[in-house]
Design a protein around this nucleic acid. Structure first.
Lengths: 209, 209
DNA sequence: TTATACACTATTCGATCGTATAGTCGCAAC
DNA sequence: GTTGCGACTATACGATCGAATAGTGTATAA
């Protein structure tokens, strides 16, 4: 039952559409993204997009699921790596660096999250059900483990999770502004190194208190 | 030369349009917002919006300027208040609380900023030129003054500014997610109180180090 | 060889997009 | 009174929106 490169070609074009859609949904949001723009960005016709996903809503859901899957394929590695020897502050530093580098390289899921968080509605509810509830719980566990080993200050773990993820995600979001105002490229490894260093300097001082 | 309530009525409807536009631009971005939707939200006809602002681009610019002006009318009060006695950590706490409360009550400018930051382009450039360059410099001065008085840890002021504003702005942005996942309303005064307390607990410990 | 399924596309639809034009109406100056 | 101006609106334009329909072509199964 060899399919002679037919079905694999179909899947290839399908995921090409998904990735073009992810880019656009992250940049200009759901209503700002047209089926035609997605198709053009993927080098395809609009009708092919509709053939694979039928409705725009379905294209959006499959796009978010695709992006989230890519994120989860990369992040647990970092989280488990950190769980091994989270006692040392160096490991917390490594974790932050890894997350920052990954997010700069794959900013799509963060952008989509912000696009929908600013318009509370059915799509945000969908993301909360599908992804965020579990993800917040996981993040909380990571923070609590780090606290138990003295790697993070012993304060409300939810507040700390918000502050910490905010310090990372916000940097990625305002990177274009930083670049234009200060001339520094926040996605640069040197900047990330310094920024995480500053962050951990604060957190380590607070942990020892 | 009494104008019999004619011109004042015109200005009133004009700013009603501006505020409806601010809401929509912040929620669904530039391309997601239609002239018709703006008009309907303001209880007016589309052609009136075009009469006052002609092009969508011009409506956007005047909307952002309007929102920014409202922000600046409120924030300097807080910043000067903090400059008076920034030596005491309590003052830094008050500043953060004030900013959080104001941002929760007026989230529009933050949302618009994120909408455009995620699509680097001419509109982001315009905002950087018009507002951000000066604003980052002001924020940096506030941080440096606080550092000089020992109210903030003595680290890179730009990194600290990013971390600090990120901790505040990010909270506002993810508030809908927090509410759905944990059931807590982040805009609530009690939550703000605790969150800022946690934040300052970390910063004060790091400042004494 | 015929039939069926699949991947894909051309064409069309009504609605809505941003924009342009030609007006209506009320007041004020002359 | 009529002229002029500013606020506002009705109507229409071409383009594009999301969506539906009716196909074409190819490869596998019978």
């Amino acid at each position: 039952m060899g399919m002679g490169g037919q079905k694999s070609d179909s899947n290839c074009r399908r995921t090409a559409i998904l990735e073009a859609a992810a880019e656009l949904f992250g940049q200009v949001g759901f209503e700002g993204t047209s089926m035609n723009a997605v198709a053009s960005a993927a080098g395809e016709k609009k009708t092919l997009v509709q053939y694979h996903f039928r409705y725009k809503q379905q294209l959006w859901e499959e796009t978010v699921a695709h992006v989230w899957q890519q994120r989860n394929a990369a992040l647990p590695t970092a989280l488990n790596l950190a769980a091994d020897d989270l006692a040392a502050m160096a490991s917390m530093e490594e974790l932050c660096r890894y997350i920052l580098r990954f997010t700069f390289a794959n900013p799509t899921w963060v952008k989509i999250m912000f696009q929908e968080a600013s318009t509370p509605g059915p799509r945000l509810d969908w993301m909360v059900r599908q992804f965020f509830t579990e993800d917040v719980a996981a993040g909380r566990r990571v923070v609590e483990r780090a606290q138990a080993r003295g790697a993070l200050p012993d304060v409300d773990p939810i507040h700390l999770l918000i502050t910490l993820s905010g310090a990372l995600v916000y940097l990625v979001n305002v990177a274009p502004i930083i670049e234009r105002v200060t001339g520094q490229d926040a996605a640069d490894d040197a900047f990330i190194e310094q920024y995480v260093g500053t962050l951990l300097q604060i957190l380590s001082a607070a942990s020892r208190a």
